[in-house]
Amino acid sequence: MGMARAQIRPATVRSFGGRAAALAATGLLGSAAAAEAAGTGQPVPWQMDLQRPVTEVATEIYNFHHLLNWIMLAVVLFVLALLIAVVVKFNEKKNPTPSRTTHNTMLEVAWTIVPVLILVAIAIPSFRVLRTQLSDPKADLMVKVIGHAWYWSYEYPEDVGGFKFDANLLEGDDQVKSGQPKLLATDNEMVVPVNKIVKIQVTAADVMHSWAMPSFGFKIDAVPGRLNQFWFKADREGTYHGQCSELCGQRHAYMPITVKVVSDQAFQAWTAEAKTKFARTDGGAKFADANR
């Protein structure tokens, strides 16, 4: 995001310096508070962190992200300290006759070994995240997700009712009445039970799309003629929002995703209603062979 520049007279800065500092401090505190109080499942203004994770994969990604930040901070501070030491101790005034040393065996061994150790420290949790992502647990529920230009459709298998429906962007008064965030709400939500392993099989009917859900810690491409699969297990009830993250055409920005995670009882009640509300699939939705 670009930052606007303005020319201000020094006198003006001095006159309003205290007020500006107070406003800046208030803004930073407000931003920190907003980020700390960020709800789950949607972005908030001034949010500085990732959305709160509600799946095992998202939690591991979240922890790995913060580990990388601490490692980067340590490296930056170490390099800064070295630069300051070089500037202070080895400037021309203190060293009129510079050293002619060209090799230092211990130093060269150290700056080879230390980066390797840092990479190992990064690799171990990275492989752990990949192992979790690529595991293939037995599913409690399968849902087929189809990307269209420009909306999503969902198909549920016969064992929970065998129905399908479209999910379009909720706009105008309908969006305001729903209380859901603008450009992220849909007229129909994908509903899944809490603490159950849900597998989604994703494809597209026309062009490439991408089904992305930040709080679940993944996004998966929807490719015409190809079926991609992923899994999640949400550990908290609530409404979670995502968007298509593949530039897919004119209304790419208007392809929101809404997933509602509910209790088992609420899910059973929803499927009973959905069987009469939505169109039935012919013989049930067809799913590719998977570890179900």
Results as ranks from 00 to 15, higher is better:
residue 1 M to R: 12
residue 6 A to N: 09
residue 8 I to C: 13
residue 9 R to Q: 11
residue 10 P to E: 11
residue 12 T to V: 12
residue 14 R to Q: 09
residue 15 S to V: 15
residue 18 G to S: 12
residue 19 R to C: 06
residue 19 R to D: 06
residue 22 A to P: 03
residue 23 L to D: 05
residue 24 A to S: 09
residue 27 G to M: 15
residue 27 G to N: 08
residue 28 L to K: 10
residue 29 L to E: 03
residue 31 S to R: 07
residue 31 S to N: 03
residue 32 A to T: 06
residue 32 A to C: 12
residue 33 A to W: 15
residue 37 A to F: 15
residue 37 A to I: 10
residue 38 A to W: 15
residue 41 G to Y: 15
residue 42 Q to D: 09
residue 45 P to D: 14
residue 46 W to V: 03
residue 46 W to D: 04
residue 48 M to I: 07
residue 53 P to E: 04
residue 57 V to P: 03
residue 58 A to G: 03
residue 61 I to N: 01
residue 64 F to I: 02
residue 67 L to V: 05
residue 69 N to D: 14
residue 73 L to K: 07
residue 74 A to K: 11
residue 76 V to E: 12
residue 78 F to L: 05
residue 84 I to A: 10
residue 89 K to R: 12
residue 89 K to L: 13
residue 90 F to N: 04
residue 93 K to E: 12
residue 101 T to W: 05
residue 101 T to Q: 10
residue 102 T to E: 00
residue 102 T to N: 01
residue 102 T to D: 00
residue 105 T to R: 07
residue 105 T to I: 11
residue 106 M to R: 13
residue 109 V to A: 13
residue 115 P to H: 08
residue 117 L to K: 04
residue 117 L to F: 15
residue 118 I to L: 09
residue 120 V to E: 00
residue 122 I to G: 06
residue 124 I to G: 06
residue 130 L to G: 07
residue 130 L to Q: 11
residue 133 Q to A: 15
residue 135 S to I: 06
residue 139 A to W: 02
residue 140 D to I: 12
residue 141 L to Y: 08
residue 142 M to T: 03
residue 143 V to I: 15
residue 143 V to P: 02
residue 144 K to L: 07
residue 148 H to I: 03
residue 149 A to I: 00
residue 152 W to P: 01
residue 152 W to C: 05
residue 154 Y to D: 00
residue 155 E to I: 01
residue 156 Y to S: 03
residue 159 D to Q: 06
residue 161 G to K: 02
residue 161 G to L: 05
residue 165 F to D: 02
residue 166 D to A: 12
residue 167 A to K: 01
residue 170 L to E: 01
residue 174 D to R: 12
residue 174 D to E: 11
residue 174 D to L: 11
residue 175 Q to R: 14
residue 178 S to R: 03
residue 178 S to H: 05
residue 179 G to R: 11
residue 183 L to M: 11
residue 186 T to E: 06
residue 187 D to N: 08
residue 188 N to W: 07
residue 190 M to P: 00
residue 191 V to L: 06
residue 196 K to A: 09
residue 199 K to T: 09
residue 200 I to V: 14
residue 203 T to W: 10
residue 205 A to H: 12
residue 205 A to K: 14
residue 206 D to R: 11
residue 209 H to S: 08
residue 210 S to K: 15
residue 211 W to T: 00
residue 213 M to Q: 08
residue 219 K to T: 08
residue 223 V to W: 01
residue 223 V to R: 04
residue 226 R to I: 10
residue 231 W to Y: 13
residue 232 F to Y: 10
residue 238 G to H: 01
residue 240 Y to E: 00
residue 241 H to A: 00
residue 241 H to R: 05
residue 242 G to I: 01
residue 243 Q to D: 02
residue 244 C to F: 08
residue 248 C to E: 00
residue 250 Q to T: 15
residue 250 Q to W: 08
residue 254 Y to A: 08
residue 258 T to S: 15
residue 260 K to I: 03
residue 263 S to V: 12
residue 268 Q to W: 06
residue 271 T to K: 14
residue 272 A to V: 08
residue 277 K to A: 15
residue 279 A to P: 04
residue 280 R to G: 11
residue 286 K to Y: 14
residue 288 A to V: 09
residue 288 A to H: 15
residue 292 R to G: 13
